[in-house]
């Protein structure tokens, strides 16, 4: 709050004081009061007026300066009403009251939505568990009847269902994962077996070069993340070369890097920065219709939640390489 803008705001009061002064002055002249008394009166009057204005100005200035400072430093600006000390002037008090009321109403509103969202999320989770039952029946039925034609389609459905599940989980819950020491080799082994048919059918060779490296993560989440990357490799492979997917891992003092490299069709320079965006399908998505643009988006989100980093590099017609970086966490080292 600048002093000039304060006086501009109080211009009317100032004019009133001046008018009052003028009237008093003319009255003093009419009664022929001595000029030294008029001077003394003027000084006292001016001093008092100035005092009133300065007092009003400074207590406001102090309050608003603190308010804006707090506002600037807050990440969640809506918490400002918790950070105000109630001022001793009326308009400030009113401001506090208004802030408090709007904040309360907003909290109620947000709570309401949170409740609805949780409700919906719970429903989605139960629905997914329910839908997995008929999927299991179908898988077994197909397997028993030696009719493998539908298995691929069932697997696709399962993958999409899984995507919904993890999307719901990555959106809004903190308690759905469990961090512990996981062997990367075991995770890759499991995924390799699950994707075996797709590898063999598309004639894509899988090379795995991972020694016994352990990382701190949630196994189920990590499986999902890597599965999204592998299924992309299996979707966007090149038919004119010996296609391969190479999975390697390497560990140094502060981090472990898991790389999934394929010599597939690659991603163009313009598309590359956007592959982690929601619903982005890009050029490759137009070539292959079954892209939803959700896989990598969810994968990135889950990585962020778990505290891992995910990066991608690629060259059209040559390769795509996705890195997942696990940082070593001192906290867990202490726990051990």
């Amino acid at each position: 709050m600048k002093i000039t803008s304060f006086f501009k705001d109080k211009l009317f009061n100032l004019i009133l004081y001046l008018i009052a002064y003028g009237i008093l002055l003319s009255m003093l002249f009419v009664f022929h009061v001595s000029s030294s008394l008029i001077l003394a009166f003027t000084i006292v009057y001016a001093f008092l007026v100035l005092l009133i204005f300065l007092y009003e100005y400074y207590r406001r200035k102090y309050f608003y300066k603190q308010l804006f400072n707090n506002l600037k430093n807050l990440d969640e600006k809506y918490l400002i009403s918790e950070m105000i000390r109630e001022p001793n002037f009326l308009d400030g008090k009113i401001l506090c009251q208004v802030l408090y009321e709007t904040n309360k109403s907003m909290k109620e509103n947000v709570n309401d939505y949170e409740f609805k969202l949780n409700d919906f999320k719970e429903y989605i989770e139960t629905w997914i568990h329910e839908v997995k039952l008929p999927l299991a029946t179908l898988t077994l039925k197909n397997h028993n009847s030696k009719n493998k034609s539908s298995i691929k389609e069932i697997k696709k459905i399962d993958n999409y269902v899984e995507q919904v599940l993890y999307y719901a989980r990555s959106e809004n819950s903190e308690k759905d994962y469990l961090i512990k020491e996981i062997s990367l080799k075991k995770v890759i082994h499991k995924l390799a077996l699950e994707n075996k048919d797709a590898f063999l059918e598309n004639n894509v060779t899988l090379e795995v070069d991972i020694t016994d490296i352990k990382v701190l993560t949630d196994a189920k989440w990590l499986e999902f993340i890597i599965n999204q990357i592998i299924s992309n490799s299996l979707k966007y492979y090149r038919k004119d070369v010996d296609s391969f997917v190479k999975i390697t891992a390497f560990k140094n003092e502060d981090k472990t890097i898991l790389s999934i490299y394929d010599n597939g069709i690659g991603i163009s320079k313009t598309d590359l920065p956007q592959v982690f965006n929601k619903s982005f399908t890009g050029n490759n998505g137009r070539i292959i219709n079954s892209s939803t643009g959700m896989g990598l988006y969810i994968a990135k989100k889950m990585c962020l939640k778990l505290g891992h980093e995910i990066t991608i590099e690629s060259k059209v017609g040559e390769y795509t390489k996705v890195n997942i970086i696990f940082y070593n966490n001192d906290y867990f080292a202490v726990l051990k």
Binding site: I128, E130, E162, D176, L178, K180, A219, K220
Partner: peptide
């Protein structure tokens, strides 16, 4: 199970 999460597994 159809519950796919780490907590149930552990």
């Amino acid at each position: 199970t159809s519950k796919n999460n780490e907590i149930d597994e552990v």
